[in-house]
Nucleic acid binder design. Structure first.
Length: 575
RNA sequence: CGGGGCGUAGCUCAGCCUGGCUAGAGCGCUUGCUUUGGGAGCAAGAAGUCGGAGGUUCAAAUCCUCUCGCCCCGACCA
């Protein structure tokens, strides 16, 4: 393809609207243009890249027996009413009416539609398992789109659904999907971590999230490089570093702390204590009953962990000031577990065995010091704190690391959540109608591109992996006024194209500097440069963008050398 | 939805506080000549409802009110 005939509107200056790297580069390199908040047009370069990513996904889905569908984006209200999600989805769902006044919506996901097909067409356990997928546009009216393609309102998603008669069969397909996902991200050249994810309010059995590691990621990922433990911060547990305590007095001592209401204030108060020698005490209302939750002063309560602890059905929230006083006899800021009776007390694991601690006295303007856990109060030990930087792996004890991640995929054992509510049953061996057991598996296509850019760029622009770059090679004619250069470039381009390689011939009559800058910006991994000087020696230059290395190669060897370079730089699966 | 910021030429921005000449610059674009290995030089030229509406004023890009849009932080995120 010739650049002169291709629409690649690069920008010399940084667009003011963009802050994150991938957003800036996607705009500057002429990949995308914004239509409205969180809605983008994909120009030819982005489209080529998205198609390459889609094709990798398609190949890996087909490889594990997935069958490609194409489901509608426009759905009738009734289907979503049946699953109960017409209500649940709330403002995140785009809704509209057809000319007859019927309620419709734009699909955020396709469990309802696919389950509808399954219940009408699947009759017998003999037809299962099935894995169905599509690559389709999804709509979500995000409260706050951001970061270019990182969080948008319209995007492409590969979503797959599997149907089973047994959990064992689901487990098997889930494992296959897990491996397929790993292969997909490997082939796209992403650095990512697969982590256990919170199954959220929907219940379900297992879920894993695949997060690309990027600086502007929305999620915090806890990862142990030693044993491979990985979890969302919401799901993660860890071992806190041991704190050496001084010996405690025989019994705790109450002391006045006028006006002290915060951990930080108590740290600097004479006779106070450092944050990690304090016990932070919070009151939650669980099904309208107060429950005490104690964590170390410098730790943060993980409400997702509390939700799991209290159970999916329980309604809980932080107690209001009035409820706190009623339960404890003091206000927040002066609370502690010592002397409390009749209340459930949850104590974070990091407090186990601690001595000589300081906490609230349950009397305003008073605290207690010299508190020994298990001597002066007792509770049930649970990990209810968020993992902190510097903690140790719960499995192997090695230091854990925390990363920012962008979710690029999630796999989920749904169970019978949809088959039950939508009455999608098959007959089993005994002739009984049983709800199909389901799994669902999603990948955000454009997020892969955005994450790849976040992970691979320099001050000059993108550096895309060969597998997802819009073109594998760019052939740059330094001086279009030199017929020799043009002829040589065209011969090389033709040869490479004949070998099935995507080549962009930069045949613009521009200054060399402009062309080199543009070539770098759009992230093509390999460049072949035809300039008059080297051409006189019968040579062209091959430049590897990622390594910033170049070699001069005889003209008739260029095609072979390019092919070899492409092969060696194509990301491989780790299997 | 709360907090903050920004809307002036295709892009990046100045001008606004303290109202007043014909609304500017750089880049890009068009034409011509020169130039050709890292965002060229000279010359000529085209291009702006100053986001929108209303108001104040002799006079509004500039002051006031409302409104729309976009970005960032937070809340939210099957």
């Amino acid at each position: 393809m010739r650049w002169s005939e291709t629409f690649i509107p690069t920008l010399r200056e940084m667009p003011a609207e963009a802050e994150t790297i991938s957003h800036q580069l996607l705009l500057r390199a002429g990949y995308i243009r914004q239509v409205a908040a969180g809605i983008y047009s994909y120009l030819p370069l982005a489209q080529r890249s998205v198609l390459k990513i889609s094709q990798i996904i398609r190949e890996e889905m087909n490889r594990i027996g997935g069958q490609e569908f194409f489901l509608p984006v426009l759905h009738p209200r009734e289907l979503w009413e049946e699953s109960g999600r017409w209500e649940i989805m709330g403002d995140n769902m785009f809704r509209l009416k057809d000319r007859a006044g019927r309620d419709m919506c734009l699909g955020m996901t396709h469990e309802e539609v696919i389950t509808d097909i399954a219940r009408h067409e699947l009759r017998s356990y003999k037809q299962l398992p099935q894995t169905w997928y599509q690559i389709q546009t999804k709509f979500r009216d995000e409260a706050r789109p951001k970061g270019g393609l990182l969080r948008v309102r319209q995007f492409t998603m590969k979503d797959a659904y599997s149907f089973h008669t047994s959990w064992e069969s689901l487990d098997e397909t889930y494992q296959q999907q897990y491996r397929a996902y790993s292969r997909i991200y490997d082939r796209c050249g992403l650095r990512y971590i697969a982590v256990k994810a919170d199954t959220g309010a929907m219940g379900g059995k297992d879920s894993h999230e695949f997060s690309a590691l990027i600086d502007v990621g929305e999620d915090l990922i806890v990862h142990c490089e030693h044993c491979g433990y990985g979890a969302n911060r919401e799901m993660a547990i860890s071992r806190a570093p041991v704190v050496d305590d001084q010996p405690a007095p025989d019994r705790p001592e109450k002391f006045p702390t006028p006006g002290i209401r915060t951990i930080a204030a108590l740290e600097t108060f004479p006779g106070g204590a450092e944050a990690h020698r304090q016990i932070k005490t919070l009151v939650y209302m669980v099904d309208e009953q107060p429950v005490l939750v104690c964590v170390r002063g410098d730790h943060t309560v993980n409400e997702a962990a509390l939700a799991r602890l209290f159970g999916a059905e329980a309604r809980f929230y932080p107690a209001h000031p009035g409820q706190i006083v009623a339960a404890m006899g003091a206000n927040a800021g002066s609370l502690g577990p010592v002397g409390v009776s009749g209340l459930r007390i949850v104590v974070d694991e990091a407090l186990r065995g601690r001595k000589n601690m300081t906490t609230g006295a349950n009397e305003d303007d008073f605290h207690i010091r010299g508190v020994v856990v298990d001597r002066d109060f007792k509770g049930e030990y649970q990990q209810v704190r968020l993992v902190e930087e510097g903690d140790f792996c719960i499995n192997c004890g090695k230091p854990i690391r925390m990363w920012k991640g962008l979710e690029v995929g999630q796999i989920f054992k749904l169970g019978v959540r949809y088959s039950q509510t939508m009455k999608a049953t098959v007959l089993n061996e005994k002739g009984e109608a049983v709800p199909m057991i389901m799994g669902c598996y999603g990948i955000g296509v454009e997020r892969i591109l955005a994450a790849a850019i976040e992970q691979n760029h320099d001050e000059n622009g993108m550096i895309l992996p060969v597998s997802i770059a819009p073109f594998s090679v760019i052939v740059n004619v330094v001086n279009m006024g030199d017929p020799e250069s043009v002829r040589a470039a065209e011969r090389i381009t033709t040869a490479l194209e004949a070998a099935g390689i995507d080549v962009l011939l930069d045949d613009r009559d521009e200054r060399p500097g402009v062309k080199f800058k543009d070539n770098d910006l759009i992230g093509i991994p390999l460049r072949v440069t035809l300039g008059p000087k080297k051409l006189k020696e019968g040579k062209a230059e091959i430049y590897i963008r990622a390594k910033r290395e170049s070699v001069d190669v005889a003209l008739d060897e260029v095609a072979a050398r390019v092919q070899a370079a492409l092969e060696s730089s194509t990301p491989q699966t780790k299997e």
